[in-house]
Design a protein around this nucleic acid. Structure first.
Ligand SMILES: NC(=O)c1ccc[n+]([C@@H]2O[C@H](COP(=O)([O-])OP(=O)(O)OC[C@H]3O[C@@H](n4cnc5c(N)ncnc54)[C@H](O)[C@@H]3O)[C@@H](O)[C@H]2O)c1
Ligand SMILES: NC(=O)c1ccc[n+]([C@@H]2O[C@H](COP(=O)([O-])OP(=O)(O)OC[C@H]3O[C@@H](n4cnc5c(N)ncnc54)[C@H](O)[C@@H]3O)[C@@H](O)[C@H]2O)c1
Lengths: 211, 211
DNA sequence: CAGGATTTGTGAAATTTATCACAAGGAATA
DNA sequence: TATTCCTTGTGATAAATTTCACAAATCCTG
């Protein structure tokens, strides 16, 4: 299923490198070494090089990497040079924050349809989009050829929303609900483990007192 | 620094087990096997057992684990049985969603102070809390003995907010801004890598077409 | 253009993390 | 109580990931 087994962690770090490269580029530098990238990312420089080499040879010995070229390359590798139509399910507190976040559009994720099951909300507009009834998720996203779904419903409704999204032909899900979604193979789920992170923080704080 | 090097991943999974145990408990079951926990979490059963054994022996051969006992044990291990006073910096879209999220309180994280630098916002109330000026972060949180800070400011202000929080005596930070925070040793930072997750999803979708 | 200074890409080694597989413990039944 | 069945905890093994360390490539200076 995975092509040539590139570690998930490497893919995630690619995103970090891209962000750092942007900062370096905006500061006016044209080249950067793996050592500097590593330092800024809090990593080992060999790891930076290994990560990049999974995707091609971008560096020049003695000089490092062309900042803008590498930034462009990573953008393309990650598929962030093309627009992706997205649907949002659950227009609650978090859903509305996501809707207002310009970072989605900047990365080419265009929110095309938003859904809720609350009849107080359905029909109203948010950020220029009419909130649609969750009953129509699959038909609406088929119509709009949506490829990615965001789940920001309560956990109890998350599997239901996922099923509807998949029925509508979606291929990837960004899941904010604290629940393990069951999806057929071929569907990519990325969990934003917000609650887990919170609890990890609690663990590391409470442990401190024992030391 | 780490006590007996327990993998970070194991700690994160502990949180997942706890969530699943709650579901099983509410469904009326009193015992559960590592096999069942593993299945629900999408993991290997040996891993579940290994994870749990890092923290003690909770199971009974032939029977499995006492659901409520294990749930209580994990809650305690993670320090979620005590209240932790929290401060939020950046009362924007995301900050307000977090403020409205009951899950914080449920886990014992009590938001005691909220800060912003926007003078339109400072002085107004949100969820019963007055928005305070970011200038006073350190003094206010010293006063309230806050132990955890949440950063939901734009990335450009995140390091500044972190510094102020640390100055005020905070020990842990939950960071939502896409930036690597520099903190002195002894301060725990947990990043919620929202943008990275989003970009990972893009990567896995764009790769699909090549296969 | 030679020589010194860098920095890449990459095998090999080390470390970390996950899985296997099974002896031993305990429950349940008769 | 003996027997059967199940499931834990764990040593051994395997797999994945990170780090080391260095030859080869390129830059830069004089
Ligand atoms: N807000 C946070 O800070 C936060 C933090 C951690 C996790 N989460 C998780 O993110 C998710 C959303 O959180 P929230 O705070 O926005 O919750 P919320 O209750 O504010 O919003 C949920 C929305 O989903 C809608 N909904 C319910 N069932 C639906 C369905 N079947 N189809 C479509 N929409 C449906 C509700 O009407 C509501 O508008 C939850 O799963 C929550 O656990 C949120
Ligand atoms: N909203 C999202 O869906 C989303 C998604 C991914 C990442 N993030 C990240 O989360 C963070 C918050 O996002 P947001 O959408 O809420 O942004 P936002 O612009 O809506 O809110 C940011 C808030 O921080 C305040 N602020 C600025 N400087 C400050 C300072 N020095 N001290 C205190 N407050 C300050 C602003 O006045 C504003 O109220 C950002 O770093 C963003 O990149 C947000």
């Amino acid at each position: 299923m995975e092509s040539y087994k590139i570690p998930k962690k490497s893919v995630e770090r690619l995103s970090i490198y891209k962000r750092i490269l942007k900062v370096i580029m905006d500061a006016g530098f044209t080249t950067v070494s793996s050592r500097e990238l590593a330092e800024r990312a809090g990593l080992n420089s060999a790891q930076v090089r290994k990560d990049l080499v999974y995707f091609g040879q971008f560096g020049t010995p003695g000089m490092g990497y062309q900042v803008s070229m590498l930034h462009r390359a990573i953008t393309k590798i990650m598929g962030l040079h093309k627009k992706i139509p997205v649907a949002l399910t659950g227009v609650g507190n978090l859903g509305q924050a996501l809707l207002a976040y310009p970072g989605f559009k900047e990365r080419g994720f265009i929110i095309e349809a938003i859904f809720d099951n609350d009849h107080e909300k359905v029909g109203k507009k948010k950020n220029g989009l009419k909130i649609l009834d969750e009953k129509n998720i699959s038909s609406e996203i088929k119509k709009k050829k949506v490829r990615v779904g965001i789940i920001a419903t309560p956990p109890s409704a998350a599997q239901f929303a996922a099923n509807k999204l998949i029925e509508g032909g979606i291929k990837g899900i960004l899941n904010f609900a604290p629940i393990e979604l069951k999806v057929p193979s071929g569907i990519t789920v990325v969990n934003v483990a917000l609650c887990e992170k919170l609890e990890m923080l609690s663990y590391y704080l409470s442990k401190r007192k024992l030391l």
